[in-house]
């Protein structure tokens, strides 16, 4: 940067353009990664979705037929329905567990970091590993839950949890809560800790009760954090695949086929990569729409309520 002093006379605009270029250079690596690993694959997927594209053999342009097909595809519609059902139940369950946990570990008390660590531990286990672990736990003969129920006298016979829809669904939801709640808890914890203690004290002096402080102080101030946790949780649930594939291979009588599972089946079991690509684009659109709606509902962009 020699001669900066003389350049001070240059018009403002030119200077701004120069720093604009410098900014571009700084973000170029990130942009390159995003273009290479997100934008290009999406464009290519979109291109594939307009073809009859078998896994082996030649491809054929069919226009929008793949998209038309999905509206009449009963199996896709039931996969959507199941995914929505799972997303609602799993998200509510995760928040119902994670919020109290976050409030519990937020206060300074004895062993609080040990609690945080223990609750967070399942998060670092891979989802596939966790699923396999729970397949074993739920095994009717050599597992833990069924035989334990029998040993405690709560059931006459060790129940086969994964054989019925309700049993398998309950097992999977509990597994997911066990695995994910710690992560949601950490996100909510950062939000809780960001609330200045003066505000809470002021509210207390004004005579606000526990519930009032939570409802009118904590919740509004955590709006952004909750939005983040909610979007992560909802997106994760909509994209659920591992647990259904590993724990129930689609569930008793195929009643646990999530949308991603159906895309996988179309692409790699039936070898219709083109239709799978069209379904992926549809799922992407659904996810973007849901995220926008959530952000709007929680108005995460606004500074203060």
């Amino acid at each position: 940067m020699t001669g900066t002093g003389s350049k001070a006379l240059l018009p403002q605009r030119k200077r701004r353009r120069r720093s604009g270029w410098r900014g571009l250079v700084y973000i170029a690596p990130a942009m390159a990664l995003v273009i290479l690993f997100f934008i290009m694959p999406v464009i290519f997927t979109g291109w594939m979705s307009l073809h009859n594209w078998p896994l082996m053999g030649g491809t054929r342009w069919i226009g929008l037929k793949n998209y038309v097909r999905m509206f009449h595809d009963a199996r896709f519609l039931s996969a959507l329905q199941f995914t929505a059902y799972y997303t609602v139940i799993a998200t509510v369950a995760i928040f119902a567990v994670a919020f109290p946990l976050a409030i519990f570990v937020e206060k300074q008390r004895r062993f609080v970091s040990a609690y945080r660590t223990i609750i967070f531990l399942p998060v670092v286990v891979g989802l596939a590993t966790a699923s396999l672990l729970w397949v074993w736990l739920a095994n009717v003969d050599s597992g833990f839950i069924g035989p334990a129920l029998k040993a405690l006298g709560l059931a006459d016979k060790s129940p086969n949890l994964l054989a019925t829809f309700d049993g398998a669904f309950l097992t999977i939801v509990i597994m997911v809560v066990w695995k994910i709640a710690g992560f949601t808890m950490i996100i909510l914890l950062t939000g809780l800790q960001a609330i200045p203690s003066e505000l809470t004290e002021a509210a207390r002096i004004d005579g606000a009760g526990r519930w009032q402080r939570f409802r009118h102080l904590t919740l509004p101030l955590m709006r952004k954090t909750i939005a983040l946790a909610l979007i992560i949780s909802v997106t994760g649930s909509i994209l659920a695949f591992d647990q259904f594939y590993i724990m129930t291979s689609g569930g008793p009588q195929n009643r646990m086929i999530s949308v991603v599972y159906y895309i996988f089946n179309q692409s790699f079991v039936s070898f219709n990569l083109g239709y799978g690509a069209a379904l992926s684009i549809a799922l992407l659109a659904i996810l973007v729409a849901i995220s926008i709606v959530q952000l709007w509902l929680l108005r995460a962009g606004e500074e203060r309520p």
Partner: peptide, 9 residues
């Protein structure tokens, strides 16, 4: 038949 048969893939 053992109960495990119902979920044996």
């Amino acid at each position: 038949v053992p109960a495990g048969a119902a979920s044996d893939n």
